[in-house]
Design a protein around this nucleic acid. Structure first.
Lengths: 125, 125
DNA sequence: CAAAAGCATCTTGCATTGCAAGGTATGCTA
DNA sequence: TAGCATACCTTGCAATGCAAGATGCTTTTG
């Protein structure tokens, strides 16, 4: 496995967290989310976002409406959090903090609380 | 999707990072890794670890040997990083830092650099 | 007018991994 | 003999990120 496909795996789940976070304070539409969460070094691409939004809506975590902004040329589909979505993002943020702290800690230290006795006697070397 | 299966998705990729990190300073065996990376609030379980170790070995990122530690009752399979693994974990750590910083930032702020004009005129409400 | 380019959303099929559950084998203890 | 702990491994399922391609509308360009 190369680094690129590892990154793909790493992104699993994070997309959902980021999208819900971005919707927490503002109503936003697809491409707008993509600009903020995708772009360079982002965590999200076109073909990931739309299925994700569809799923979140189906699950009742976000609500959608079609609207025509004053400066827009075509209608856009705007999403916002539902009450259920608000509750979930709060929980997710807590879990993310624990999770990332755990990974970072494992990364930094060798966790060598119990340094094992160097094992000897290799078998059938 | 419930929170539990979201966490499962979140863990994708992280397991590999954590395992390689734990092998960075010490040779370790399976259950030992599991105690440090699994346990309560961990990121890893039995059925995840062994296939992962097998894959990493097949890919040449880690090296294995069977050894009998002085205090052990049965032989254990000890893993350590290969040169290739060392190079990869360095890269992965860098990417993880960027990635987690990005997610955390998206989580904390609304990224409201360009507050959009509130879209009006809902269509076919 | 026709063609091209841009905006915006959506769909399909594939690749990949985490995990619960179950399995094998050894050694110790009652 | 049975039970338990240590230790490693396998199978099948569930879940999602993404490249690639498609649609429809509007504006610009030749």
């Amino acid at each position: 496995m190369d680094i690129a496909s590892w990154q793909t795996q790493l992104r699993k789940g994070a997309a959902e967290l980021v999208v819900l976070s971005l919707l927490q304070r503002q109503e936003r539409y697809g491409l707008e989310i993509l600009e903020q969460a995708g772009g360079s070094g982002g965590v999200l691409s076109d073909g990931t976002l739309y299925p994700l939004l569809t799923r979140l809506e189906r699950e009742g975590k976000i609500l959608a409406r079609w609207a025509m902004a004053d400066d827009a040329k075509v209608p856009r589909k705007y999403y916002r959090l539902s009450d259920e979505g608000e509750a979930m993002i709060a929980e997710m943020k807590k879990l993310w903090n624990e999770f990332s702290a755990f990974v970072s800690r494992a990364m930094e230290e060798a966790h060598d609380g119990t340094p094992i006795a160097s094992p000897s006697r290799t078998i059938s070397a």
